[in-house]
């Protein structure tokens, strides 16, 4: 299964990428929301997107709204992975169409359990 990691921090992308690879995922990456839309257009088989909130060009919330505003990628599960930890922001992201929400910092166990909650792999 293929996942899209969207974060402007290369370090975070590398960390998430390593976790997902160890869990058997194929990974593609983007540094902001606009780039992610382009990556997604070339990788329509992505089943999961891990999305940072605060990024240049297009932020994570705008990316979620953009993707959910189309008929494409309806099966793709979206998980925010962000430092934003206000209840109001979590609600905002869920209402925009995110399926799960991880607050940084995180570890492998957190990511694995959240992916399991999305029904994409065993816990």
């Amino acid at each position: 299964m293929k996942a899209l990691i969207i974060d402007d921090s290369r370090t975070i992308r590398q960390l998430l990428s390593r976790i997902l690879h160890e869990c058997g995922w194929e990974v593609v990456e983007a540094g902001h929301g606009q780039e992610a839309l382009e990556v997604l257009a070339a990788n329509s088989d992505c089943r999961l997107a891990l999305v940072d909130w605060n990024m240049p060009v297009m932020n994570g919330l705008e990316f979620v709204r953009s993707v959910r505003g189309e008929d494409k990628h309806t099966d793709m599960r979206i998980m925010m992975v962000t430092t934003e930890n206000d209840t109001s922001n979590i609600i905002l992201a869920l209402e925009a169409g995110a399926n799960e929400y991880v607050m940084k910092p995180f570890n492998r166990d957190v990511i694995e359990k959240k992916i399991a909650l999305l029904g994409l792999t065993a816990a």
Binding site: I90, L94, A98, E100, Y101, V102, M103, F106, D109, V110, K113, K114, L117, A123
Partner: peptide, 8 residues
Amino acid sequence: VNRGLPAP
């Protein structure tokens, strides 16, 4: 709360 708790 990150570990296993659904965001909703």
